[in-house]
Amino acid sequence: MFEFPEKLNFHIGNYIDMLVNWLTVHWAGFFDVIKSGLLWVFVNLNDFLIWVPWWYFILVVFLLACQYKSVGSGIIYSAFLFLIGMFGLWEATMYTLTIVIASVVITIIIGIPLGIIMASSNRFETFSKPLLDAMQTMPSFVYLIPGIFFFGLGLVPGVLSTIIYALPPIMRLTNLAIRGVPKEVVEAALSFGPSKWQLLRKVQIPQALPTIMTGVNQTTMMALAMVVVASMVGVEGLGLEVLSALNRIDVAKGFEAGISIVFIAIIIDRLTLAISESTQSRTGKGHK
């Protein structure tokens, strides 16, 4: 009487499962291409980051911080990186960075154009908004499961689920930024008879850039957050260190890996914010 009738049980999950199975069988070639492409990018990037001497890496971060923030922050960030090295987590950190950079670059390449389409088509916007909500609220672990079917364990499903997770903010903010360009500025731009592409390139994107950069920053932070989760499908790096510490209930190791992630997060967040602000002071002038 009070319980939901069992007769009405219906499992949409079964159909999703069937779809995934079907895709795995019939689209295998497609997924292999994606996989090998991603792996190629990833391996080269990772090799490069590991090849760079640790002190050189710290120096670059220090100089960037000096340029865009202050000498003080430069010293703090350098100390963070130095500590990570002392924990013995340098290589794991570089691996994590590789995943973050690769995912963020791919996310931006996909997300900004989609955001622009969203801004120019109301229909596409209404259609994609709930989808983006779902992408963001769906627990991120769930993406990992079909990823394993398509790509097996390891890096590729990790990066792909990171992309899915990090895509919404950049799309949303690009859309918002372009729609937020003052009406009169767009009218002024239009009154000179530009093509759609000229309008976008000469006025809308530059005007929207500060907000888009905020989106890039958010995307980066979400990618970093996803790294730990992705370790569940065997992605190496700091996430895996945390996961193995969790399995062994090793507080010391867990703390070191955890704090390293925090350090990296702080450095990436502050540096990208500072760099995006410097573009704002040049391009976002006079928003009234």
Partner: peptide
């Protein structure tokens, strides 16, 4: 044709100037 018309024959000045702040 509208693009060409706007490019060659007509121009507009706006109340709040409509200037491009990034230029």
């Amino acid at each position: 044709e509208l693009q060409e018309f706007r490019q060659n024959k007509i121009a507009m000045v706006f109340q709040n100037f409509g200037l491009f702040s990034h230029r």
